[in-house]
Design a protein around this nucleic acid. Structure first.
Lengths: 228, 228
DNA sequence: GCTCTAACTTGAACATGTTCAAATTCAGCG
DNA sequence: CGCTGAATTTGAACATGTTCAAGTTAGAGC
């Protein structure tokens, strides 16, 4: 079950060939229609070969996800360097997620399903996925911090984690979106990011004070138990 | 693929035996560890027999849903007949969900992951689960309607569906909850239901008017595309 | 009671993810 | 060059969800 890293040049080649074959076939046929035998054939290794570097078919999907995360980082770097408005930063970042993931829309369901399984070590709330999760949370921390919005400290503390959860919800919506160009998802992103910014602005209203405390306590409690 | 209903007494017995065997084994060993062969053995039919009444192993899970849903209905009937306060009705209803599902807590994770896959016929947003989903939404409509709370019409329209989504979120939290007696989930239910009632009370604040419109439009849009 | 048909049941066969013991390769070393 | 041990590779074997053609049963109609 442990992930074995290649120790030789030859091993590196094999691992890369397997991964590329898997990514190509996933994109071309989808996850379920891609058999481990087809991956092995295309990679030029035997059936068992893949299991030397990837403990399971699902682990190949996770490599897929890691790949898109890196594409995402590259895609939004200019925006984050330039833009100061929180709404624009948030909208651009989340839009970039779904745009980056677009080539993999057909596979995304299986990714999500894999990732949603609480008993899997790959669960985003669990330990194994922790580095990647923290990278994404840190990204949202930067989205907020690099803006000119003044966020109260108690909210700022929990906001990145909340935005990460929000992104997961958007991705789940996106998986179901069959509209051309995934326009509906983009619309929902525009609506929700604007809503988030507006609600942040309203958070200091006296009448909302107690709800704010309650919500923050809730987020803290949920995050504290399941994630941290 | 079509679901075949038994036409004879013998058929009814077989179907019931298969279903009972499946529920018992799911509860005892979990979803993945329960093989179709074990189900068939325990039910006293041959391997292929199950497929006459249940198109797939996942469809047996759907029956499991229905089973717990019916237990849930029975559990909350007295409360809904007696209580008029919205917060109490909501809290009691959602508490009853997790209490009803408690015997299946260990299984719930793998079931959730199976079912979260959008390509699964059992996906709660998809077609096969539609009748059951509509029953649950109708239940929440009754929770609201039978209360003495006065809910604006535009909110009342989308509230049951939103509460169903909320229930799903609670269930996902519950899956991760390792606290004794699942006390943390119950606490979160108490917190969130009170928050929901409070926010409903605030919905008429002028300053929230535009956010309210936005949120309702969002829910309507999300529901219209993926679910209805 | 006999026949016929639809309902029901069977289990071998298949597809595919996974395992694992054995075979092969290869770089380093004397 | 030949040896050695680790890294890599192999493919047969296994487990399990699913299919399906063939067999069996039971009840309606006569």
């Amino acid at each position: 079950m442990a992930i074995v890293l290649p120790k030789t040049r030859k091993g590196e080649n094999s691992r890369a060939a397997i991964l590329n074959a898997a990514l190509d076939l996933f994109r071309e046929r989808g996850y379920e229609a891609t058999t481990m035998r087809a991956i092995a054939d295309l990679a030029g290794v035997s059936l068992g070969g893949s299991y030397h570097y990837f403990p399971s078919k699902e682990h190949l999907v996770l490599e897929f996800y890691r790949h898109t995360h890196e594409l995402h980082l590259v895609a939004i770097a200019p925006l984050l360097a330039r833009e100061k408005d929180l709404g624009s930063r948030l909208r651009g970042t989340v839009r970039a997620v779904v745009i980056t993931c677009e080539p993999f829309h057909a596979v995304a369901g299986s990714i999500f399903s894999t990732v949603a399984n609480p008993s899997s070590p790959l669960n985003p709330f669990g330990g194994a996925a922790r580095p990647l999760r923290e990278e994404v949370v840190a990204l949202y921390a930067e989205v907020v911090k690099g803006s000119d919005a003044r966020i109260p400290a108690d909210i700022a503390e929990m906001l990145p984690l909340t935005l990460w959860l929000y992104q997961m919800a958007i991705l789940y919506f996106w998986i179901f979106d069959r509209s051309p160009g995934r326009l509906r998802t983009l619309e929902v992103i525009d609506e929700t990011t604007e809503l988030i910014v507006r609600l942040l602005g309203l958070a200091n209203l006296p009448v909302l004070r107690s709800s704010r405390k309650r919500i923050l306590g809730l987020v803290r409690s949920v995050a504290g138990g399941s994630i941290a």
